[in-house]
């Protein structure tokens, strides 16, 4: 599992570059590096469904970010300026929150199951029912879960997607706005 740690180090580095670099196009490319590393890690973690979705979604995310940056500007003018009072306050409060968060997370991580040994109470039931005569009968357990056992969840997801598309199309059009 050493390659998992290497990828995590790479992702943290790319994330720091994405937040701190001056050129916004380079920041978006660093974000793409993080996203594709996530896709490769999904394959290592035995989740091929997630890897396929993550790769194609990552490509579309990059395309949309680049479209917005090409229409506007690609220089981040706020990097390198002197810090304002609000920003110093934000950094101080973030540090306080981060320390508190890390303490809480450290105590939580000691309670949850260790890496590589999940408790699979409900999941064993889904796997057992998967191909039996009572179950949905699909060979892909993830497809069984999202479209049969928990189909209402997917319906809610479809609603969110629909709302988001409507909002984007409404916000971007020109007609109907005041001059």
């Amino acid at each position: 599992m050493i390659e998992l740690y290497l990828f995590l180090i790479f992702m943290v580095t790319a994330a720091i570059i994405a937040t701190e670099i001056k050129d916004l196009m380079a920041a978006v490319i660093s974000l793409g590096a993080v996203g594709f590393s996530v896709a490769i890690m999904f394959i290592m973690l035995q989740a091929p469904d997630l890897a396929i979705v993550q790769i194609v979604v990552e490509v579309l995310t990059i395309v949309i970010f680049v479209a917005v940056i090409l229409r506007t500007t690609h220089i981040d003018k706020t990097i390198g300026k002197k810090l304002s009072g609000t920003q110093i306050l934000a950094i101080v409060s973030f540090s306080g929150f981060a320390i508190l968060f890390l303490i809480v997370m450290f105590r939580t991580l000691q309670e949850i199951p260790a890496f590589g040994e999940p408790i699979m109470k409900v999941a064993m039931e889904y796997i057992r029912l998967g191909l039996s005569s009572y179950g949905p009968g699909g060979a892909n357990i993830v497809a069984n879960v999202i479209l049969d056992f928990r189909a209402l969840d997917t319906l809610g997801e479809a609603t969110v997607l629909f709302t988001s598309v409507i909002a984007v199309v409404t916000l971007i059009r020109k007609s109907g706005r005041k001059k």
Binding site: Q46, V57, T61, V122, L161, V165, A167, V168, L171
Partner: peptide, 27 residues
């Protein structure tokens, strides 16, 4: 098998994430 339930939850969350990112960029 590995646990399928977190994978099923994340599968929908990835697509929703793209849609909400697009909405944020529109604003």
């Amino acid at each position: 098998f590995v646990d399928p339930i977190p994978q099923a939850l994340v599968l929908t969350a990835i697509v929703i994430g793209l849609a909400t990112t697009a909405l944020m960029l529109t604003v």
